[in-house]
């Protein structure tokens, strides 16, 4: 940092800025929470205020903005003005007059030092949408998600790309790769659902087609088998049946019952079995769920004992209603 400070040349000493008169910040007479900016930053902002005032949109402004955003990437006005300058330059002299490779490099650099800054992502979307297109975006996102698999700006950008440029090809394989690396990556599970929902969900019947459900049950279980206590694939399984009954795919219950004796101590499998039994709504299935509830609150899921006790009462009521109706 001190190295950088030594090299800093104030804008007043720069030849190409000689014609500009900087504008100092007006803090008012007696600021309660005065703001502590460095002299360097003040210098840049003084020139920025001047540029704003004269609406200078020449090429040199980009250089000034480069310095400012790198120091303070959250300043909205600076990003906004940057887009104004880019639009102006392209309008004036065509797309080739502006170095978009350099722009993407800057964004890449800033994206990796400050990956959760909305402004950086927003600017990126603007450049992609208006000038450079989606080429290379997936590769870039792959890098970002490699650093932090849960960065929600990166996921939101990816979902936007997929929908706007129909880049679905290879996406399931990508998610699969992430899940192979980490079965517990809930963001990746969410993304898998997003892909299938967009590609296959039947908007008329408000449900997922049966062939997809069948395939995905199999997929979820390949991960469950590695770590049965991982909540994500269990939620995923439930999500597949959104809008329809578990009974449309009896294979699910069959698989659960086959695995259940092996998964002693796994609350998720037991909880899903209870749900399916409740849906079946027979005397046998409800009695069996009551037994499972007891096991859950007495042994394997004590931390959620209040919930399982509630559920037990619920099922008892259901059973009573059933007997009365027969």
């Amino acid at each position: 940092m001190s190295d950088k400070e030594q090299k800093y040349i104030p804008f007043s000493n720069r030849e190409e800025w000689k014609d500009v008169k900087p504008i100092e910040q007006d803090d008012g007479p007696n600021p309660i929470c005065p703001i502590a900016y460095s002299d360097e930053f003040k210098d840049k902002m003084n020139y920025f205020r001047a540029v704003l005032k004269t609406q200078d949109k020449s090429k040199r402004v980009i250089e000034l903005l480069n310095e400012i955003v790198q120091e303070n990437p959250s300043n909205y006005t600076v990003w906004y003005y940057r887009r104004e300058v880019i639009k102006h330059l392209v309008d004036q002299s065509g797309k080739d007059s502006f170095d978009f490779d350099e722009e993407m490099e800057l964004l890449e650099e800033m994206g990796s030092t400050d990956p959760k800054n909305y402004q950086v992502w927003n600017h990126r979307r603007f450049i992609v949408e208006n000038y450079v297109g989606a080429n290379g975006e997936k590769e870039f996102l792959e890098q970002v998600l490699q650093e932090d698999a849960k960065n929600y700006h990166a996921w939101a950008h990816r979902q936007w790309l997929l929908k706007n440029y129909s880049l679905w090809h290879g996406e399931l394989e990508y998610v699969d790769k992430l899940l192979q690396l980490d079965h517990r990556n809930n963001s990746a599970w969410n993304h898998r659902y997003f892909i299938l929902f967009n590609l296959h969900f039947n908007q008329q019947t408000k449900s997922m087609p049966l062939n997809i459900i069948e395939k995905e049950i199999e997929y979820a279980f390949t991960h469950i088998k590695h770590s049965p206590n991982n909540e994500s694939p269990w939620s995923y399984l439930r999500g597949l049946f959104k809008g329809q009954k578990y009974s449309v795919q009896p294979k699910l219950l069959a698989t659960l019952l086959e695995l259940k004796p092996k998964y002693i101590g796994c609350s998720h499998i037991n909880s899903l079995v209870i749900e399916i039994y409740q849906e079946q709504n027979t005397k046998e299935s409800l009695e069996e769920s009551l037994k499972i509830c007891k096991i859950l609150y007495q042994n394997i899921d004590q931390i959620h004992h209040k919930y399982w006790e509630f559920k037990e009462k619920n099922i008892k009521d259901q059973l009573e209603r059933l007997i009365l109706s027969q």
């Binding site: 849960k150 929600y152 939101a156 979902q159 969410n190 939620s235 999500g239």
Partner: peptide, 15 residues
């Protein structure tokens, strides 16, 4: 979302 939770945007993970 499919798990019953909500995200910051349509399609975003529950939080």
């Amino acid at each position: 979302n499919f798990d019953g939770g909500y995200g910051c945007l349509p399609g975003a993970e529950s939080h």
